[in-house]
C-alpha cells in the first residue's frame, strides 16, 4: 500500500474525463487499497476519486464514519462506474477539496440521490444516499467528469436572501 500524490489544480489532468473500469482484477484491488490509504491521509479523509491521483478511471471511494460530527452513512463504499439514476431536492453546502487547497465555497447539490455502481468485485449494486453523504458522493463523482467544486460555485452572500430590484411606481398625480 502507498499514499499516492494528490493532484492539485491548476494541474490540467484534473479536468479530464475518466473512462469506465473494465477489468476487476488484482491490479484494481491494489489500486483501491492505495486510493483508500491516500484518502485517509488527506485533510478531509471522507472521499476521493481516482482522477485526483492521476488515474483516469471511474472509481470513487467514500467513508464518512470518521467524521467528528456523525452523520448517517453507508460506511466504506467503493463506487466503480457509478451512474446517478435519480435526484431529489436541492441544498446549498460549503465545500472544499483536497485538490483545491485553501479555498471553500458554496455549491448546490441534490439532497437525495440513487445510484448504481459496481463494487470492487464488479457486482452491480444500488445505493440511496442522502444529506452530507449525498453531497460527498456528488462531489467525488464530478471528478470523474473533470469537474471541480469550483465549476459549481454559487454566491456566498445570496443564498439566504435573494433581493430583487423592483421599479418604484410613479408618484400619483
Amino acid at each position: 500500500m502507498a499514499v499516492l500524490e494528490i493532484l492539485r489544480y491548476p494541474d490540467a489532468r484534473l479536468k479530464r474525463e475518466a473512462v469506465a473500469v473494465e477489468h476487476f482484477d488484482s491490479a484494481l484491488q491494489a489500486f483501491i487499497a492505495d486510493l483508500e490509504e491516500t484518502m485517509r491521509a488527506g485533510p478531509g479523509g471522507i472521499g476521493i476519486a481516482a482522477p485526483q491521483v492521476d488515474c483516469l478511471q471511474r472509481i470513487v471511494l467514500i467513508d464518512l464514519r470518521g467524521l467528528r460530527k456523525p452523520v448517517p452513512n453507508h460506511g466504506r463504499v467503493v463506487l466503480i462506474n457509478p451512474e446517478i439514476t435519480t435526484w431529489e431536492g436541492m441544498a446549498v453546502g460549503r465545500e472544499g477539496c483536497m485538490s483545491v487547497p485553501d479555498y471553500t465555497g458554496n455549491v448546490i447539490r441534490a439532497e437525495r440521490i440513487t445510484l448504481t455502481a459496481c463494487d470492487a468485485e464488479g457486482v452491480t449494486q444500488q445505493y440511496d444516499f442522502s444529506g452530507y453523504e449525498a453531497r460527498a458522493v456528488q462531489h467525488e463523482l464530478d471528478h470523474l467528469d473533470g469537474l471541480l467544486f469550483l465549476d459549481r460555485l454559487v454566491s456566498r452572500h445570496r443564498d439566504l436572501f435573494r433581493r430583487k430590484v423592483y421599479q418604484e411606481p410613479p408618484p400619483a398625480k
Binding site: G42, R94, E95, M98, H139
Partner: peptide, 8 residues
C-alpha cells in the same frame, strides 16, 4: 446555523 464544511 453550523456550516458543515465537506472537504472531498
Amino acid at each position: 446555523r453550523e456550516i458543515d464544511l465537506m472537504i472531498g
